[in-house]
Nucleic acid binder design. Structure first.
Length: 981
RNA sequence: GCUCGGGUGGUGGAACUGGUAGACACGCAGGACUUAAAAUCCUGUUCGCCUUAAAGCGAGUGCGGGUUCGAUUCCCGCCCCGAGUACCA
């Protein structure tokens, strides 16, 4: 009789059992002190969306989990936490539509995420879970905001310092001796003047220095979402979320003085192990350019001048006109009466254009002459002052000195408006286009004639500084980050207003709890939703700030909260921060390149400046997992024009397989004929088939396997189509009454698209876990390809991994499914297989090549199966190596092997012994003129000379030599022999 | 336009610093077991030519060239796909 307890690999029972065990025993709880070295593995925490996880989301989590489990086995104290970035727009949009509080939606979504994450067997330390929307978390987000408000950036020391220190300086020395990153229009005053200022005046002045400050600025306003958006939340002129139009608007806004850290953010990139494309994106975003600012005085106006920024100050003698952005503040005052009409018309035209898509039109040249002239700072020549929309108000000073000989846009402009073009280098060719060369010697350039680029630049900067007309300057593209959102579902800003000025609430009053409101929409007067909160006043009299923090606030420091998640008195204890320091490995998507990852680095540097963080950079190593795209399946439905049919007739549904459709497409006459005849037979007497056509229809990928449609499942999926007829790949036909068992198949067409519900290409991990188990899913996701590569999801092939795990299970069992492992000494071949995999997996994990280690596991199990190996000495080691990948099955086997339950996660990792891999012989590939012809077994101890002699004496080799003497014989020991004839 | 990735069988992919291209899987074909199906196992599977077969020959990592005894790997030129970014002075 068969014993029911002894059965094939029962993944469902095993996985449930161990997930419960890990949770009950807190197996993965990390301690904040240890004799072991620390290792911090972080995943980008998810926004818990209503749709739950699809199969692409866990890719990075699986990789980080494998790495965490591996590091634990290698003797590290591993911190591997998880949480939720739970403030955000979708929950609020849902609240607007349904009236349900976003907290409730969020709670429900988190429950779904948690269930799905638990099913995958991740080794997270859930005791450290964080949620950015929970008051005991956002208390500290607000607290960090307060620290930023209370700090300014000292350029002399290159770090943030306390605002009190600045106030003390002002009180004793006035503004002298302070170099800060601050607003442009800061005052100059003496100590006495400062001390005489009113409270309001002092606060107004200090606001210009604070690292988070309130200022009127041009913002990206999204009317549909009713909020401002950061630059990185706007893509191609529309909002990243939802794709709504975005316009420019002036508003009083909280901003973060991230520009203070521009240089440090740039420098820091050199010292972190991040993917090059990502670093490059951050460099571009920061956009440092080194050059000079130059002042052009205005003819007949000694009060004002035009300041321009240039990266090629050496070309200054090539300047033939100066251009202002149409929005430049001096345009109106500098336009002469003659030109007024033309200039105003041009400004009107650009305004209209920018509302449409100005980006598309970069080729046409347009502009208008203001009628004014500026004077060249070095030779005093009169230069025309123009406006044109190719000059951007938001970059540099909104004005450029035009050098048509060296800049293509200036060149086109000069050609179009007939302005002079002066070459300034002897090697320059400006016949057809601008030539931006730095080679050669200067001409037409006054005192730099005959010099070369480097010396010329230095000479000009020196001269400009001497006469007070300019100076060397570094310009950054990066702007300060807008920090307010006119939304409900975010952290309240811990600020109230007195006499129109912002003040922080008391630290002891944190957290400032998000108040309840009746509707999640702006007020009638256009204030943010928080304006609806009743009796919500500071000390019952002062208005609170009504905007909330942006989505990136909570995620800019969360990795510190994980270090000490329960701490009620600090954002994290000093001991915890000093112990964990920084994140050793961070895994997540590259879509956060210029948002989260830049803001996090900024906050981290600030926290370091004020002594709360230890490291300058928060994330030592970062890996971007590739995006998982959808792989849609399609059916082709015949859609012919019918003649002689009355209106009530319902067309028969006929689907043709991909191959048949392709024959039809290629114009295969027989196929077309046969389909038409076939269809005609389905029609009533007298009807005719006219023009044939096909509709390409999405079909649920979950009822398609290896591109073959499960017809029975299709009839259930689409009950309205349950009478459909299918023409299969070989031309045979399945009618509704048929029991869909057939030699041939209905093959679907395939396309790669974004994964989305409407395309029926979403694959849910729950279904795959139900069918194959999470160990299989984990390994399959890794087996799919290199972690960093984007790839379409394709469930074809998951069977192979499932088979592998069953084969692995079988290694430990006899034919009757009884656990059978013996203590015999392993053979040489068994040890070789084992140590091959020990080395391979170690190498693969260290370089994050998880797909190749899955292959290697398959090879090892295939080899050991062939060797009929069931020896503990080999198998127990193999269980440890495989456990990071397939933890459940390995835990089960580990206990079956007689070990204490739960000890596998901290077992001793097998040590690679190279002596087991030493070979005596090697089958040398023998190639003739680079083409491999045969293999000859030779001892590896043989010296190249002996190998050569032996090879040349070989009769098979002689055949190839054909009596000739080889010109040359290359012998690479242990590798190859190449004979050149 | 610029900056990064990337082009290898029917498919996903492997090949670490130049050394037997196609590991490992999927799929497909054939076979065993079975009343049958599922499951399982075995064999074959880059393409082309030739052969009854064994074997043999030729081509082959987007295209064209180069360096080298030897190139998927290095260099030059070009084509295609993907991502990011863009009047940035």
């Amino acid at each position: 009789m068969r014993n029911c307890e002894k059965m094939d690999y029962q993944f469902k029972d095993i996985e449930k059992k161990w997930q419960q065990f890990w949770a009950a025993n807190q197996t993965f709880k990390a301690e904040n002190q240890s004799a072991k070295p620390k290792y911090y593995v972080l995943d980008m925490f998810p926004y818990p969306s209503g749709a739950g996880l699809h199969v692409g989301h866990p890719l990075g989590y699986i990789a980080s989990d494998i790495f965490s489990r591996y590091k634990r086995l290698r003797g590290f104290n591993v911190l591997h936490p998880m949480g939720y970035d739970s403030f955000g727009l979708p929950a609020e949009q849902y609240a607007i539509q349904t009236g349900q509080h976003p907290a409730i939606t969020t709670e429900a979504n988190i429950a779904t995420y948690r269930r799905q994450l638990d099913q995958l067997g991740f080794s997270f330390d859930w005791s450290r879970e964080v949620r950015t929307s929970s008051p005991d978390y956002y208390k500290w987000t607000q607290w960090i905001f307060m620290q930023l408000f209370n700090s300014w950036y000292n350029k002399t020391d290159e770090k943030a310092e306390s605002i009190e220190k600045l106030v003390a300086h002002f009180a004793t020395n006035g503004s002298a001796g302070i170099t800060a990153v601050a607003d442009d229009e800061i005052l100059t005053f003496t100590a006495a003047e400062w001390n005489a200022m009113s409270e309001e005046a002092q606060q107004t002045e200090l606001l210009k220095y604070r690292l988070t400050y309130l200022r009127e600025s041009t913002v990206n306003w999204c009317p549909a979402l009713g909020t401002v958006l950061a630059n990185d939340e706007v893509k191609d002129g529309v909002s990243e979320r939802g794709g709504y139009p975005v316009e420019q608007k002036k508003m009083m806004q909280w901003s973060m003085r991230i520009t203070a850290y521009a240089e440090r953010l740039l420098q820091g990139l050199d010292n972190i192990d991040w993917p090059d494309p990502l670093k490059e994106m951050q460099r571009n975003w920061i956009g440092k350019s080194v050059g000079a600012s130059v002042k052009f005085s205005i003819e007949g106006n000694t009060q004002q001048n035009i300041e321009v920024f240039t990266t090629r100050v050496d070309t200054i003698f090539g300047v033939t006109f100066v251009v202002l952005a149409p929005e430049h503040e001096l345009v109106a005052s500098l336009t002469t009466p003659d030109q007024k009409e033309a200039v105003e018309a041009y400004i009107a035209q650009t305004k209209k254009k920018s509302e449409l898509d100005r980006m598309a039109d970069t080729k046409s040249v347009s502009g208008a002459f203001t009628g004014s002239y500026v004077l060249h700072p070095l030779n005093g020549e009169r230069i025309q002052l123009w406006i044109a929309d190719y000059v951007l108000a938001g970059y540099g000073t909104g004005a450029v000195m035009a050098v048509p000989s060296g800049d293509q846009r200036d060149y086109l402009f000069a050609k179009h408006f007939n302005l002079p073009i002066i070459p300034i280098l002897d090697t320059q060719n400006t016949e057809k286009e601008a030539d931006a060369t730095k080679e050669g010697k200067y001409i037409n350039s006054d005192f730099i004639d005959g010099l070369e680029y480097k010396e010329a630049t230095a000479a000009i900067v020196a001269k400009l500084e001497e006469i007070g007309a300019g100076k060397a300057k570094v310009n950054f593209r990066m702007r300060d980050a807008i920090f307010g959102r006119q939304r409900y579902w975010g952290e309240p800003v811990p600020v109230y207003f007195k006499n129109g000025l912002p003040y922080l609430i008391n630290e002891s009053e944190l957290p400032l709890i998000l108040p309840e409101i009746d509707k999640y929409l702006p007020t009638e007067s256009g204030e943010p939703p928080l304006g609806r909160a009743e009796d919500w006043k500071y000390q019952n009299q002062y208005e609170y700030e009504l905007s909330t923090m942006p989505g990136w606030a909570g995620s800019s420091w969360y990795w510190y909260r994980y270090m000490d998640a329960q701490n009620a008195t600090n954002f994290a204890s000093k001991e915890a921060v000093e112990y964990w320091k920084d994140v050793d490995l961070y895994i997540g998507g590259s879509e956060h390149a210029t948002g989260h990852l830049l803001y996090s680095r900024f906050w981290n540097k600030f926290l370091k400046d004020i002594g709360l963080a230890v490291e300058e950079e928060p994330f030592k190593k970062l890996i971007n997992q590739g995006m998982i795209q959808g792989r849609s399946s399609f059916t082709y439905r015949l859609n012919p024009l019918l003649l002689g049919i009355d209106d009530n007739f319902v067309k028969p549904e006929v689907y043709v397989s991909k191959g048949i459709y392709e024959l039809y497409k290629e114009g295969d006459f027989d196929t077309i004929e046969q389909i038409a005849l076939f269809y005609k037979d389905l029609l009533p007497e007298g009807a005719e088939v006219g023009e044939m056509d096909f509709s390409k229809l999405h079909v649920d990928v979950n009822i398609v396997s290896n591109d073959a449609l499960d017809i029975a499942a299709f009839r259930t999926w689409r009950p309205d189509n349950n009478k459909a007829i299918f023409i299969l790949e070989d031309g045979s036909v399945i009618y509704p009454a048929d029991n869909a068992q057939n030699e041939s198949k209905y093959i679907c067409d395939v396309e790669i698209e974004k994964m989305s519900k409407s395309k029926f290409n979403v694959v849910n991990p729950d279904d795959l876990i139900e069918r194959y188990g999470s160990d299989t899913l984990r390994m399959y996701e890794m087996f799919l390809g290199p972690l960093e590569q984007s790839k379409p999801w394709n469930t074809n092939g998951i069977e192979g991994v499932f088979k592998f795990l069953r084969k692995f299970w079988r290694l430990f069992h006899n034919e009757q499914w009884e656990f059978t492992v013996n203590d015999d000494a392993p053979t040489k071949a068994e040890l070789k297989s084992l140590h091959k995999i020990i080395r391979k997996v170690e190498e693969d994990i260290e370089r994050f090549s998880f797909n190749t280690s899955v292959s290697s596991f398959m090879i090892a199990v295939n080899e050991l199966t062939d060797l009929k190996c069931n020896k503990r000495a080999v198998l127990q080691e193999l269980v440890i190596i495989l456990s990071p990948y397939a933890p459940h099955i390995c835990e089960e086997l580990w206990t079956l092997l007689g070990n204490e339950a739960g000890t596998l996660s901290y077992a001793a990792y097998p040590v690679f012994n190279p002596s087991y891999l030493v070979e005596d012989e090697f089958a040398y590939p023998i190639s003739v003129n680079g083409k491999t012809r045969l293999n000859i077994n030779m001892a590896l101890t043989m010296e190249p000379k002996e190998v050569e002699a032996l090879v040349l004496a070989n009769p098979d080799v002689q055949k190839y030599l054909d009596g000739k003497t080889p010109k040359k014989v290359i012998v690479v020991k242990g590798r190859i022999v190449n004979i050149v004839i």
